[in-house]
């Protein structure tokens, strides 16, 4: 067992422990809300998933710009890892919102601007991942991905502001002024832990893709060496 493997295992254990603790804290400290009762507790997974997804796409945005400026493959691979985690978190946000919407709004889904723009965000980054899978040449893949990653991120502020700019079924953003104390800390703690989970997943995925690239490089090197020895 290599030391990095042990460290990874420890980090994974800590992340899981934090995740469990944050959710227990949230559920245990929240009384049934005046209007929606215990359904309020869905807030502690839906909202953090959305915030973490926004941040992940923020990483894609920054790394895509850095790639176009510096042309370092590591930036491209980090952007790709963040995009994949962002897609999973956005999908989770949509599914959790749907589960929350059915008992509170009365519908699983409606095409209001918040929901529609979030669905668009999801589709764009699924497209980003699809694009990567069908372009083999690494430089070209990185350039095109960076372009889509930057354009795709522009949708994040649109999603965020949609509840202010347009009429929606989705409520506007809450703030500590609109949320009573018992719920504020549950949300904050779960948000922080979700962001830690996001960072952890991106890091692991990034490590894996760096290693895969190194393997590819070594294979090429070896192929060249064997070819050379035959001539």
């Amino acid at each position: 067992m290599t030391p990095s493997n042990d460290a990874g295992r420890l980090a994974g254990g800590v992340v899981v422990a934090l995740f469990v603790a944050a959710q227990l804290f949230g559920v245990a400290t929240s009384p049934a809300e005046a209007g929606m009762g215990h359904l309020q507790k869905i807030m502690y997974v839906h909202v953090p998933a959305a915030w973490a997804a926004f941040l992940a796409f923020g990483i894609v945005f920054i790394m895509s710009i850095l790639y176009l400026v510096r042309r370092r493959e590591s930036h491209d691979l980090l952007a790709a890892s963040a995009a994949q985690v962002g897609v999973v978190l956005t999908g989770l946000t949509l599914a959790l919102g749907s589960i929350w919407g059915r008992p509170t709004w009365g519908v699983w889904w409606t095409w209001d601007p918040r929901l529609t723009s979030t669905a668009v965000l999801f589709v764009i980054f699924v497209g980003y991942l699809a694009l990567r899978s069908f372009v083999d040449e690494p430089q070209q893949r990185a350039r095109w991905s960076a372009a889509v990653g930057i354009l795709g991120f522009l949708n994040v502020p649109i999603v965020y502001m949609s509840v202010r700019w347009w009429r929606t079924l989705h409520q506007p953003s809450s703030s500590p002024a609109t949320v009573d104390d018992p719920y504020v800390w549950g949300l904050r703690i779960n948000a922080v832990v979700f962001i830690i989970v996001m960072a952890y997943l991106i890091r692991r995925l990034y490590q894996a893709s760096i290693l895969q690239r190194k393997v590819e490089a070594l294979e090429e090197e070896r192929a060249l060496a064997t070819e050379g020895s035959h001539v």
Binding site: P31, A32, M36, G37, W105, G106, T178, D180, D181, Y183
Partner: peptide, 18 residues
């Protein structure tokens, strides 16, 4: 029929069940 929730989350008053 859809119910629109506000962005307010309030702890219930004593003795009140949602």
């Amino acid at each position: 029929l859809m119910v629109k929730h506000s962005n307010e989350y309030r702890a219930p008053e004593e003795g009140q069940r949602p």
